[in-house]
């Protein structure tokens, strides 16, 4: 697997785009999954996962072939997701009138940032609920929990992906578990 990927990377370095399509084929599910779990939105996840692959292609010459390609790719993806979460800019004005309504503006359309009423949460399907609780986690806990429990990655690899010491990864996983425990205490 790694040998095949390294061969494809060499071909990409020689300017062959078709070889890169094969790399995308191999990693598309993994990367899209992490982006979706981080962002909780299909369209954003697709956009960010695509962007991550484009960046990988453009910067492929900086990849060190002695290391794992998936680690490098996850790193690009998670960084883009964290940036997106932190710098979410509205691409519309909140006080703009909505067409077809009389005097209603965007303020009336914003989902409440406070938690959903408990009865709503209980009605959720299990899979929806998992995603909902993950998205409620602060982003620094979110990334480690997703990589550890949804992608089953070893702690050492998580520390490489997020570029932080192993100890920090452990602490964040512990705190992430505690945060989720409090969130789920009504289950």
């Amino acid at each position: 697997m790694d040998a095949l990927v390294n061969k494809r990377i060499k071909e990409v370095l020689n300017g062959d785009q078709n070889a890169f399509a094969e790399i995308v084929e191999i990693y598309q599910d993994k990367l899209y999954r992490v982006c979706f779990r981080m962002l909780g939105n299909k369209h954003e996840a697709e956009d960010i996962a695509q962007e991550a692959f484009v960046r990988a292609f453009v910067n492929i010459h900086t990849f060190d072939s002695n290391r794992k390609f998936s680690t490098w790719l996850y790193r690009i993806g998670t960084n883009l997701c964290i940036d997106r979460i932190r710098k979410k800019k509205p691409d519309y004005y909140l006080d703009a009138d909505i067409a077809g309504t009389d005097g209603l503006n965007m303020y009336s359309q914003i989902a409440s940032t406070t938690e959903l009423p408990e009865e709503e949460v209980v009605k959720m399907e299990m899979q929806e609920r998992v995603q909902y609780e993950i998205t409620r986690l602060p982003d620094k806990y979110r990334a480690v929990i997703i990589l550890k429990y949804m992608e089953d990655l070893p702690l050492q690899e998580i520390s490489e992906i997020l570029d932080m010491p192993l100890g920090t990864v452990k602490t964040r996983i512990h705190r992430g578990r505690e945060a989720l425990r409090k969130q789920l205490s009504n289950m």
Binding site: M126, Y149, L184
Partner: peptide, 14 residues
């Protein structure tokens, strides 16, 4: 339970 809950997330594809 938290661990089992998070691990129950289904594997989605691109």
């Amino acid at each position: 339970k938290v661990v089992a809950f998070v691990q129950s997330a289904s594997h989605i594809s691109a």
